[in-house]
Simulated assay, not measured.
Amino acid sequence: MASSGLQLLGFFLCMVGLAATVGATLMVEWKKQYQGKTHRIYEGLWMSCSGNERTTCELHQSLLKLPIEVQATRSVMMLSILLSSVALLVSTVGMKCTHFMDDKPDTKSITAMIGGLLFILSGLLTVIITSWYVSNIVHIFKASHRLESYEFGKAVFVSWAGGLLVIAGGAFLSCRRCSRSGSESISVNHLLPSSSSTSSSNPKSNYV
Rank of each mutant, 00 (worst) to 15 (best):
W46S: 12
W46Q: 13
M47V: 06
M47T: 07
S48H: 15
S50Y: 05
G51L: 11
E53K: 10
R54H: 09
T55P: 03
T56C: 00
T56F: 02
C57P: 12
L59F: 11
H60G: 00
S62L: 04
K65A: 13
L66G: 07
P67T: 01
P67E: 11
E69V: 10
Q71F: 06
Q71V: 13
T73F: 06
S75A: 12
S75N: 06
L79F: 11
S80L: 03
I81G: 03
I81N: 07
L83I: 05
S84H: 10
A87H: 02
L88E: 04
L88K: 02
L89H: 01
L89F: 12
V90T: 12
S91D: 03
M95Q: 08
K96Y: 03
K96W: 09
C97M: 10
C97P: 00
T98G: 00
H99S: 10
D102F: 02
D102W: 02
D102A: 00
K104C: 08
D106C: 01
I110E: 14
T111M: 00
T111F: 00
A112F: 02
M113R: 09
I114W: 01
I114S: 00
I120H: 10
I120R: 12
L121Y: 07
S122Q: 13
L124Q: 09
L125Y: 14
T130I: 00
S131D: 15
V134A: 03
V138R: 00
H139R: 15
H139Q: 15
H139W: 14
H139V: 09
I140D: 14
F141N: 10
K142W: 09
K142L: 05
K142M: 05
H145F: 05
R146F: 10
S149D: 15
S149N: 09
E151A: 04
F152Q: 10
F152Y: 15
V156I: 13
F157K: 07
S159M: 03
W160H: 08
W160V: 08
W160L: 15
A161V: 13
G162H: 07
G162N: 05
G163V: 13
G163S: 12
G163P: 13
